[in-house]
Write a protein that binds this DNA or RNA. Sequence first.
DNA 1: TAACTGTTATATTTATTGTATAACAGTTAG
DNA 2: CTAACTGTTATACAATAAATATAACAGTTA
Lengths: 129, 129
Amino acid sequence: MFINLDFESDEPIYLQLVHQIIEGIARRDLRPGEALPSVRSLASDIGINLHTVNKAYQHLKQDGFILIHRQKGVVINPDGVPKADASHKSQLEKNLRPLIAESICRDISEEEFLMLCKSLYKTYQGGRS
Amino acid sequence: MFINLDFESDEPIYLQLVHQIIEGIARRDLRPGEALPSVRSLASDIGINLHTVNKAYQHLKQDGFILIHRQKGVVINPDGVPKADASHKSQLEKNLRPLIAESICRDISEEEFLMLCKSLYKTYQGGRS
DNA sequence: TAACTGTTATATTTATTGTATAACAGTTAG
DNA sequence: CTAACTGTTATACAATAAATATAACAGTTA
């Protein structure tokens, strides 16, 4: 796995885990149906507690990124991640708003902001339909 | 003031304060040099503790949005907010990355994402040079 | 049977958040 | 001069979140 945690960050490590797995899916490094490490093995691999990994997995399950089979294991959602609905988009806007407000205050132009977004999109679209 | 707090939100209220003041500056509702309410009056206005307001003000001061004169009061930075440097932009990219990764997973196209950003920029650019 | 799965329960530690009072030092208005 | 106002500091407390530590349970699989 490609997990790289920053224990000094103000971002909780269970959230770092969630984000890095989502990024792995976006990057198509993690494919639909692909298995994820068990909570215990991943925890010991990266040197954290089993419950912290489990918390991350539960979040990812709640949001449809993964499936958890009780006595089998954890798998990237074989049907793909559910498409964004209205509430997802509203949440996205809510998260985006303060970033854009600060960017405007700091004189980052709309063009520069959009270019940054485009380059990030490009980061994830190595091989996509 | 245009402060509207959500006490049910998972976002800390001191951060809600920070964001709403930054948005007020971006919207040019708060102008450079304009005075902000004292920690005590704002706290009592919105029904929270003085220290919570002070925490928000300290963050805004740290980031150059406001100036605090010891026995005078709090003022929107008269020289304007310091422009983004490399570390600001790196932080912006860091904050943007998980939003874009999830958007890709949820099949939000680059075009749709960019349109959302544009419409948010438009929200703040009511009267700008 | 043994080793593995996710899950649940309990407990503890630590950090963050928010509140509550009180006081200090300087400014300003009456 | 006094009173009321600034931000600031200190201390204490409660509630919550984050992370760890053990332990056990119920199925699955080699």
